[in-house]
Amino acid sequence: MTRLTDIALRHATFLVFALVLLWFGLQAPGFLSPESIANIVKQAAFIGIAAIGMTFVLLTAGIDLSVGSVIYLAPLIAGFAMRDLGIGVGGGLVVAVVSGAFLGAINAAAIVGLRIIPFIVTLATLFAFRGFGAFLTGSQQFDFDADMRAFGLASIGPVPLPIVFFAGLAGLAHVVLTRTAFGRQIYAVGNDPEAARKAGLPVDWIRARVYVISGACAGLAGFVVIAQIGRLDAGFGEGREFDVIAAAVLGGASLFGGIGSALGAVVGATLIQTVRSGLVFTGVNLYLQPILMAGIIFLAVLIDSLRARRARQLKRRTIRPIDA
């Protein structure tokens, strides 16, 4: 019995996921069709790509509130570059990622260089980046050329491009986090920054890089989704930082650092998108959908905290054999 609860708690997100799929599947069988599922994953790529970057930040016990604005500003800069410099969509993609990384580097400089806490720095840049974007456009919508949309709707073989990026990034991030020195050192810094410093790890440099990564991922996420829409509204991405954080946390990342994985972020983002799509699919009132979303997130966080509490109980030493 307790073993069963343990297993259930450990794989809570998957369990919730399965239940959600089952529920919507029963409501509307078409929901589980391959096209519908592929569509969900495609839409999940947006939040998912940014959530992978956010996972790097959360692993160091940091937070990046500016992603919602980077998602807006980086593709915008790419848009200007494409229009004014005549670089193609591929060039635009690179510009989006690089400018995302640059915006992340601004966060990193303030956090590491000026020693201001991440919450405040990224809160400030959340305003500043969006303000700068609105300044560039005069708060107008920005329209991309037709080849941008063509790129967004393209696919490699049967796989739509957003999924290619999503999967590719997830794989890359997974390898970086689990198989490289940098990745393991991120976990070390999140677990105990003081010990990491004593061990001679370049703590500041590691911290700086995760914000650059988060910015780059947000830039990529923004570009990929804008490519599907073909235009960039002034309010695009506003409030998305919360979706991104929720996805990473649903995927098992801890806000206190040291715990989390790239694949978890993928699962978390896909779960959120599944619920969102499912609610649309089953025709739930538009205004009620966020409430159900919130319910799902609450459930996942609740299960996570129950799991943590259970882990603490198990850690408490048993001194003597437990008699039946």
Binding site: L114, R115, I117, I120, A124, T125, A128, R130, F135
Partner: peptide, 22 residues
Amino acid sequence: LSAFHIDMVKGGVILMAALLDV
């Protein structure tokens, strides 16, 4: 100033305040 300038300045001020706190 337009809304976007205000956002930018606001961001800068929050940052300055945090720096002062440090």
